[in-house]
Amino acid sequence: MERMQTIQFQGQAGSIDCALDWPTSPTPSGWALILHPHPLHGGARNNKVVTTMSRAATQLGLVAVRPDFRGVGKSDGQFDQGQGETWDMLAVVEQFQSQFESLAQGHFVLGGFSFGTSVAAQLYSLLAQQQQRLPQALVLAGCAVERFRFLESLTIPTHTYLVHGEQDEVVPLSESMSFAQAHDLAVHVIPEAGHFFHGKLILLRELVSAQWQLGLLRNT
């Protein structure tokens, strides 16, 4: 059985409460950081899309880290439009890698859903700017990067995987397409899927798993 534990890291606004989902394999091969949707609209680490992405990670032998953004659950602080949240996640990366050195030496992948895509994309960019180790894969589901972007420029790898519901009622497919055009990316569209991928979560898990599996083959 997979097991879950909670752990706290320290961000700019105080404690960041995280769930760690451990794979069944006795020696995990690395870790995944998975970021949840908008905190003011019910977004939290137990969101079904986030837990689906977590399952994709644990099935690959990765420890999945699911933080609650500031002001959600037991995490301190208040919603900060993506800016404070991005710096918090940079702190999570640094502190996780310090506390779990063996996992930090293994694989590292990054994913986000909706609001979490903006934080994930900007986190990747900050890691690149600071010449820190980069995730081997970046998965953005229901891409809303530009809605909460505060960085002047983004570093988006060519292997970034965008997956979007054809009938997304929260973030229109056209928004994801515009982001893809700006960064020369492809978009995987799931027919008849809405924003929360109801009825399509098993498919989403398989797609994310496949992309992360490809990422594990990269040396970044």
Rank of each mutant, 00 (worst) to 15 (best):
A64H: 03
M53I: 14
R70H: 05
S15Q: 14
T6H: 11
V92W: 10
D80Y: 02
P28V: 03
W22H: 00
A104K: 01
G82M: 11
P23T: 03
K74N: 15
H159G: 02
Q99A: 09
V92Q: 12
F100C: 11
I34A: 11
Q81S: 09
V171M: 09
L138Q: 08
A120R: 01
P39Q: 11
W31D: 02
V145H: 04
E101F: 02
H198L: 07
I7D: 04
A210M: 13
G106Y: 08
W31Q: 04
G14Q: 05
A182R: 15
L204S: 07
D168R: 01
A64F: 07
A57K: 13
F100Y: 15
K200F: 05
F115L: 07
W22D: 01
W212M: 09
L154P: 07
H164W: 08
P26W: 00
Q132K: 15
D184C: 11
H198Y: 14
V63L: 06
P26G: 06
G77N: 12
V72T: 10
E175N: 01
T52D: 03
H41L: 07
M4H: 15
L134D: 05
F69W: 12
A186I: 06
V170H: 05
Q10C: 12
P157H: 13
G112Y: 06
A121T: 10
A193V: 00
Q122V: 06
T58S: 14
A104E: 04
V93N: 10
T86P: 00
D21G: 12
T86H: 01
Q5P: 08
L217V: 04
Q10G: 09
P135C: 07
Q81P: 00
L217D: 03
L127R: 11
E175C: 03
I190E: 04
E85T: 02
P135I: 04
G14S: 02
R205T: 12
V145W: 01
G142H: 12
T6D: 11
W31K: 09
S176C: 07
V187Y: 07
G82A: 02
G142R: 02
H198A: 10
H36G: 08
D184P: 00
Q167M: 10
S25W: 08
F179E: 01
L185K: 12
L162N: 12
D88W: 07
A141H: 03
E192A: 13
H198I: 09
V170T: 08
G71K: 04
H41W: 14
R3F: 13
L90H: 12
I190R: 05
Q132F: 04
E146D: 13
K48W: 08
H195V: 03
Q59G: 15
T58F: 14
V50W: 15
R55Q: 15
A137H: 10
L214S: 03
T160S: 14
D21A: 15
F148L: 03
M4N: 12
L204F: 00
G73W: 14
G11W: 13
F9K: 14
L214P: 06
E152C: 06
H183R: 09
V92C: 05
G112K: 02
P37A: 03
Q81Y: 06
G43Q: 04
F196H: 07
F9P: 07
A104P: 05
G71N: 05
G43H: 06
G42T: 09
V139K: 06
P26S: 08
F179N: 03
A19T: 14
G73Q: 07
P157S: 04
D68E: 10
E2F: 15
